[in-house]
Design a protein around this nucleic acid. Structure first.
Lengths: 252, 252
DNA sequence: TGGTCAAAAACTGTATACACTTATTTTGAA
DNA sequence: TTCAAAATAAGTGTATACAGTTTTTGACCA
């Protein structure tokens, strides 16, 4: 059963249960983890959404065991919160937590540029420009997709450093920033960012690391500033959540 | 069975199976996770040690389910590595990975000081000095304990910032640094560090953040420099591992 | 009309079962 | 003896069962 009455779990997976059995190669956890993660970042699963293991499992056609592992990872990443014996829920960070995440992000991305700058390769630049093009392309599509693509640009930079730890940290901070932007962002807040990405690539291409770092810093400050509403809208939202329980469909 | 023949899992837990059942409060995963983590950092479990879920489970008196969750977390933290269908093993980072970890650590700890510096409280200073005292105290005890305490000093600083994400990242980078020092460090390499910790507190107390940051940076460079042998000793070690299979007891 | 408390339902924590994969040992032929 | 294939053991991936814990429902009472 997908439990529609309380409005939890509006949408999570389109995968129906397998015909025979899920005995194929063993990447079920990975699949569930990735799907949930993306659903959260794109806000298909809104902050505060409950994630009962059974329901998620049936959505993906897997058992609780698998869902459980996936959720452990999401909790470790801070995208999902969980208290003992209680259902895991999509994280719903406060505005202050959001600001803290952006502070860490600034420091982390500075590191990325300082590591990458001196050793960036032409192939990297090509790839980055291609990515910016696809961002440009997606400008008119749904907001969450734009947010995700913007995040992936930063992730790409991190990956090019070859520093595994730095990449993981960046990945995590970017995920959380995406969640926060989705939660507190004004509409279309990330639009002009595409241009800033381009300028950053230009600076990297010229080997002007100083400038690249400065651009990145300003870029992130800008995203945080124009992206984060100054008022903590969580109270408002949780009211909405409450109300949504009384509406026929859970679409928020 | 604890499987002694191949020398895996030399020691991990002293907990015997419960009398009745482990039906108490549900923090088994946390317990196993914490214990394994500490055993790894203190190198009771040497890098490369296999961690079969069954064996670990019987060591702690819990089922595979619990161990599995704990291991997932350790893998996420980079203290344990795992390939599909194969036993998890304690991570054995290369020297180059080690250097990368220390680069990230430097950046992270700079952030910590910049966040903490302006808002540090007297109570924090007291606590820090107390910790340094206990470091001083443990100077003559076993090397791993000293490494752990030293790491905890840095973790304390991070916690005082109140920045949850920064704390988690710092915690992780410190864990990994500990593992690396245990693996590549020269004996007694972290001894003089205690003094450096004191100087750092002094600077914080005077509100001289500039200096605190510089001290920290030098401190970490020093730890990495005098701590990390320049030669990659992994080959040597894995030879030892091979040999240890032919010796009666697995003590390395 | 509210509010309280107990029964029922929904979930989580943990153990266990089993199919399938990887590692190790044995066996048999050159 | 030596090597490789087969047999066996060890281990992982996943599902399921069941006890114990919330959460929800519903009846009863003021």
């Amino acid at each position: 059963m997908i439990r529609g009455k309380t409005g939890h779990l509006k949408t999570a997976g389109r995968r129906a249960p397998k015909g025979k059995r899920a005995n194929r190669s063993g990447n079920l956890v990975e699949h569930v983890y990735t799907s949930l993660r993306r659903a959260i970042i794109e806000q298909a699963l809104a902050p505060g959404t409950k994630l009962p293991e059974d329901s998620v499992g049936t959505s993906f056609g897997v058992s609780r065991t698998v869902v459980r592992s996936a959720i452990v990872r999401l909790v470790a990443e801070g995208l999902v919160v969980q208290q003992p014996n209680m259902r895991a829920t999509v994280a719903s960070p406060s505005l202050e937590e959001g600001r803290a995440v952006f502070r860490v992000r600034r420091g982390l991305e500075r590191m990325v540029l300082e590591e990458l700058g001196p050793r960036i390769e032409p192939a990297h630049l090509v790839r980055l420009r291609a990515h910016v093009a696809s961002e440009e392309n997606a400008k008119r599509s749904a907001e969450p997709k734009a947010i995700r693509l913007s995040g992936e640009f930063h992730l790409l930079l991190a990956q090019f450093t070859g520093n595994e730890l730095l990449t993981r940290f960046t990945s995590e901070v970017v995920s959380r920033a995406s969640l926060i932007l989705a939660l507190y962002g004004r509409p279309h807040s990330s639009e002009c960012a595409v241009n800033e990405h381009s300028m950053l690539i230009d600076a990297l291409e010229r080997g002007d690391i100083e400038r690249a770092v400065r651009l990145m810093d300003e870029h992130l400050v800008a995203v945080a500033t124009r992206g984060l509403l100054e008022t903590d809208i969580r109270r408002e939202r949780s009211l909405q959540d409450i109300l949504s329980d009384y509406r026929p469909t859970g679409e928020v």
